[in-house]
Design a binder for these strands. Structure first.
Length: 433
DNA sequence: TCTGGGGTCCTAGGACCC
DNA sequence: TCTGGGGTCCTAGGACCC
C-alpha cells in the first residue's frame, strides 16, 4: 500500500465488526423502556459480579467484573437498576440482531453473543460508511439494540475501528479506517492494551520496552515479537499493518472442549451435595455434546475452595478419566464424573466451586467400539433422544438421572431475574401427553 | 455475608520410537 | 571413557477472547 491516499476498499476486501453496545443491559432495556437514560447493570451467576453496564452505570464509575456487594451503596444512592443474568433472553435477542445483520451481506461470522464480523468484497463501488449507518439504523428499528460498526481491511483493524466508533461520540457509532494515512493516525492514539489479542500480561511486558500505542507495536522488529509473543503476536502485528491474516469463519467448527462449571451460592462440605452438583454438570455436558452431535473421550472433574477466604484452609484438585469408548450418554458421563469426584474429594474442606470439562471430542458418526464394551449403545442413544425431547418441551431439568437428585439445592442465586419476555409459553405447553 | 462461566491457541518439555 | 539425531505425541501451563 504505497499510496497514502488510495482507499483500501479499492484494492482490498473490507471487514466490519458489528458490536452491540452494552449488550445485556441493552436487552433488559428493550423490554422496560422506562430504564432509558438510567443506569442499568447485569450481574453474573449467583449475582456475583457486574458483567454488563449501561453508559450511565459506567459513568458512575462501576467497573466491569466488580463484585456486587462492594457497590451496594452506589446502587442505592443512584437508583441503579440491577438484573440477574438471563441468558435465554440474551440468546434470543442475539439471534434477532444476527438475522438483521445477515440481511446486509452474505459474508458473516457470528463471533460471540453480541459481535459479528461482516465481510464486504465486491462492495468497492459503495459508500461503506453510509451503508454501515443503514445497518445500524435497521438493527435499532428491528431489535431495539444499539450497535457500533468499525470498518477496516483486517479484522484486527476493524476491532480498533469499532472501539473508536463506540467511544468517540462524534462518529455516531460508525468509524472506518479507509486509507493508509488514517491507519497510522488512528494507531498512534490507540493504546496497545486495547488491541484484540493483547491482554494484560503482554501490555505490561510491552510497556517495559516503551511500546504504549498500537503504532509503537507495528514498529517493533518481527523477530522480537515472534520470540516473545509467538506467532500469535506476529499475526496481530501484520493485521495492524493492514495485511489480512485472519479470515472470516462462516460455519462454527465443533467445540473441542465443553464445560459446565459453577460456583455455589454457599460453600459446601458434603460429598452428597457435591455429587448432585457434579452429576448435573456432567448431564449438562452430555446434553451439549448431543446437541453438536459429538462424543467425548475424556472427562475431567475439578473442585476447589474459596480462593478469597484467606482465613480458611484451601484445597484444589482435578481428576481426568479416559472413557473406554467415547460417549455422549448422560448415564455414562455422570458415572465417570462421580468416580472422578470421589477420587479428589477430601472431607473437611468448604468447597466453593466445581465443574466438569469433557474433551477428546469427535463426531458420533463412527465410534470405534472396544472389545470390552458391554453397553448397549443403541438403547442408550434412543433413551437419550427421548430425554432430550422431554427436556426440550418441559424444561431442562424435567428428566434426569437419579444421581442428579431432585432438589436442585445447589441452584443459582438469581434474585433479580427479568421475566422470560422472549420465551413462547404456548410452544411449551402444547404437548401431547 | 457476598468475587462468573465457557472457550481457543501456542509452547516447552518429557516420553517414546526408529 | 566415549554415548546421535530426528520425529511424533501428549500434557501442563500460560496467554488470550467474550
Amino acid at each position: 500500500m504505497g499510496h497514502c491516499n488510495l482507499r483500501y476498499s479499492q484494492v482490498l476486501a473490507m471487514f466490519a465488526l458489528a458490536d452491540c453496545n452494552n449488550f445485556y443491559a441493552s436487552c433488559e432495556r428493550v423490554f422496560d423502556p422506562s430504564l432509558m437514560g438510567k443506569p442499568v447493570i447485569v450481574l453474573s451467576n449467583n449475582d456475583g459480579c457486574v458483567i454488563a453496564r449501561s453508559n450511565e452505570a459506567k459513568a458512575l464509575g462501576i467497573k466491569m467484573g466488580e463484585p456486587a456487594f462492594k457497590i451496594k451503596e452506589l446502587i442505592e444512592q443512584h437508583n441503579v437498576a440491577v438484573f440477574s443474568s438471563n441468558y435465554t433472553l440474551y440468546g434470543d435477542m442475539s439471534q434477532r440482531v444476527m438475522n438483521t445483520l445477515a440481511g446486509f451481506t452474505p459474508d458473516i461470522e457470528i463471533y460471540s453473543i453480541d459481535e459479528a464480523f461482516l465481510g464486504f468484497h465486491g462492495f468497492s463501488h459503495m459508500d461503506l460508511v453510509e451503508y454501515a449507518r443503514q445497518i445500524r439504523k435497521t438493527t435499532m428499528r428491528n431489535t431495539g439494540i444499539p450497535i457500533s460498526l468499525g470498518l477496516a481491511p483486517t479484522k484486527t483493524l476493524a476491532k480498533v475501528a469499532n472501539h473508536i466508533a463506540k467511544k468517540q461520540a462524534q462518529y455516531q457509532g460508525v468509524y472506518m479506517i479507509a486509507t493508509e494515512q488514517q491507519r497510522i493516525e488512528t494507531l498512534k492514539s490507540f493504546e496497545i492494551g486495547e488491541v484484540w489479542g493483547i491482554g494484560r500480561q503482554y501490555s505490561k511486558f510491552l510497556a517495559r520496552y516503551g511500546v504504549n500505542t498500537a503504532y509503537d507495536f507495528t514498529k517493533m522488529p518481527a523477530g522480537w515479537i515472534k520470540r516473545h509473543m509467538s506467532v500469535v503476536g506476529l499475526r496481530t502485528q501484520k493485521e495492524l499493518l493492514g495485511i489480512p491474516c485472519i479470515d472470516l469463519e462462516h460455519a462454527a467448527p465443533p467445540k473441542k472442549a465443553i464445560a459446565t462449571t459453577r460456583s455455589f451460592g454457599e460453600m459446601q462440605t458434603d460429598l452428597g451435595y457435591l455429587s448432585e452438583a457434579v452429576a448435573s454438570f456432567a448431564a449438562s455436558c452430555a446434553h451439549k455434546l448431543r446437541k453438536q452431535q459429538s462424543v467425548a473421550q475424556i472427562v475431567m472433574v475439578f473442585a476447589h475452595t474459596n480462593y478469597f477466604r484467606n482465613d480458611l484452609p484451601q484445597y484444589s484438585a482435578s481428576k481426568t478419566i479416559a472413557l473406554p469408548v467415547p460417549s455422549n450418554s448422560t448415564i455414562e458421563l455422570v458415572h465417570y464424573a462421580l468416580i472422578a469426584l470421589r477420587a479428589i474429594y477430601k472431607p473437611g474442606f468448604r468447597y466453593k466451586k466445581a465443574g466438569v470439562i469433557v474433551s477428546g471430542i469427535s463426531t458420533n458418526q463412527h465410534i470405534q467400539t472396544s472389545l470390552f464394551d458391554n453397553i448397549d449403545r443403541g438403547k442408550h442413544n434412543r433413551l437419550m433422544v427421548t430425554i432430550d425431547k422431554l427436556n426440550d418441551k418441559y424444561g431442562r431439568h424435567m428428566v434426569r438421572v437419579a444421581a442428579q437428585g431432585t432438589g436442585r439445592k445447589w441452584k443459582l442465586r438469581q434474585e433479580r431475574i427479568s421475566p422470560m419476555y422472549t420465551t413462547r409459553w404456548d410452544d411449551i405447553i402444547t404437548v401431547k401427553v
